[in-house]
Computed example of a mutant assay.
Amino acid sequence: MISSLLPRNLRRTLAGQLLALAIALALGAVVILMIDENPLRVFATLMRGAFGDSEKIAGTLLQTTPILICGVAACIGLRGGMFNVGIEGQLFLGGFAAAWVGFSFALPPVLHVLVAVAAAVAAGAAWVSVPAYFRVRFGANEVVSTILANYVAVLLTSYFTIFLFKRPGGWSETPPILPSAYLPELFSFSRLNIGLLIGLALAVATALFFRFTTTGYAVTMVGSAPKFADYGGINVRRAGFGVLLASGAVGGLAGGVETLGVHHRFMEGFAPGFGFDGLIAALLANGSPIGTIFTALFFGALRAGSLLLEVDTTASREIITVIQALIILAVSADLLLRRKGDRTGGRRWKF
């Protein structure tokens, strides 16, 4: 049996996560019954809306891309013992920075994309640097500071979009970026672009980094046993600061990919909830970048499949929000139980 090849702790963790997901889906079925709809029909409609044909599959992968990249950003923070809940804000800042480079400068095609992506990465890292500094300098809880930073980021980008860079006569959006800054599309019938390949490569590279490099091992030690890491000579504060910067940079990258590959401009609320979905995907995958590929696909399928719900059933697509909330509660309960069962005494988060 394949399961017998996995370490006992990993098998227990995977079993807990799968149980949490099953409980959430079961509770979701109860909610669906309460609105006089058949849960099997709703779930079948979701599957058909997500994987019914090639266009629907492409739509699912399109929704999966930002969730995957945000999930990798969350995995980086979790592996280093940092809970970066501000990925949503970093995504918005990264998306705006990429759009600004895209419509403000005329550069050769490949160079334009690279500069816009670099601006997105830099914006995400810069935005998380303030919570990171207060975390390592004063011990401020990064969960609280990064959550608060989300609201500031969303409102700040809204101000930029409405009052400084609004397209004349249009919606609350910036001018479109130049075609030289577009990310190449994978298929002619979909907006799915190479951002998906970037996300997959990033997930694999992150997993390999933590598995086979000394720096990755040091970060893992800081996250799993900070007192032992400090005793072993690792600068825990510097490692924590670097982990949050890297996590924020990847969060900004997610916004850049969404702007350059999908919308080709920045709009108010252009990517609602992708950062939080990525965080949930990372938690459900227990902080594994490879596992996040599959959990991000699950949430991408929920988002894409929900578009068909209001057409073929009497259920609202908001039922997906309810299911996601139930998953958050179930996964959080599983994490709390596993943390109470931890006897190391030095861990902030157990991943």
Rank of each mutant, 00 (worst) to 15 (best):
E310C: 01
A330E: 09
P175D: 08
A281Q: 09
F241M: 05
T161I: 12
G59M: 06
M47E: 03
M267E: 15
E37K: 11
A304S: 14
T313C: 04
E142H: 07
F103A: 09
I319H: 02
P226A: 02
A132W: 06
L25S: 09
A203I: 05
T13R: 14
V121R: 05
I177L: 03
F187E: 00
A203V: 03
R317V: 00
I320L: 00
L202D: 02
A285Y: 11
Y217L: 15
F276I: 10
F187L: 04
P226V: 04
V72R: 04
V144W: 11
G52M: 04
L156N: 01
G80S: 03
L148S: 01
N141D: 15
G86F: 11
Y133G: 00
E318Q: 06
I32W: 09
L6W: 11
L78S: 02
G255Y: 14
G341D: 09
L93D: 04
S145W: 13
K340V: 12
T295R: 06
L61M: 09
A205V: 10
G139N: 02
R339T: 13
V331Q: 10
G195Q: 03
A254K: 12
P66Y: 12
A246Y: 14
A120G: 14
A271R: 07
E88P: 12
V72N: 02
A246L: 15
G252C: 08
G139M: 04
I293N: 01
Q324V: 15
D53R: 09
S4F: 13
R211Y: 11
G287L: 08
A333V: 12
V250C: 05
L93C: 11
A333T: 14
L164S: 07
A24R: 07
K56D: 00
W349V: 15
A296N: 01
K350I: 06
F210Y: 15
F163D: 12
I76V: 14
D36V: 08
E318N: 06
M47C: 13
A315F: 11
M267L: 15
V143G: 04
V154K: 05
D334Y: 06
V154F: 14
V322S: 02
A225T: 08
F299H: 01
S180L: 00
L335M: 13
G223A: 07
V219P: 12
G300Y: 10
L68A: 01
R339L: 13
A97K: 10
G255S: 08
S3A: 13
V204E: 03
A15S: 11
S224G: 09
E258M: 05
P184S: 01
T344I: 06
P179I: 02
V136K: 02
F276H: 10
K227R: 15
P7Q: 07
T65P: 02
R137P: 01
N9M: 03
P7K: 11
T215P: 03
P66D: 00
A249P: 13
L335I: 12
F276Q: 05
G233H: 08
V121M: 11
L337D: 00
Q17G: 04
T45V: 14
L307M: 08
G169H: 03
S332G: 15
L27E: 08
I147C: 05
A333C: 04
Q63K: 14
P131Q: 03
E310A: 11
L329Q: 06
T174P: 02
F51L: 13
I87A: 03
L336M: 13
L200V: 13
G223C: 07
A99I: 10
S129D: 03
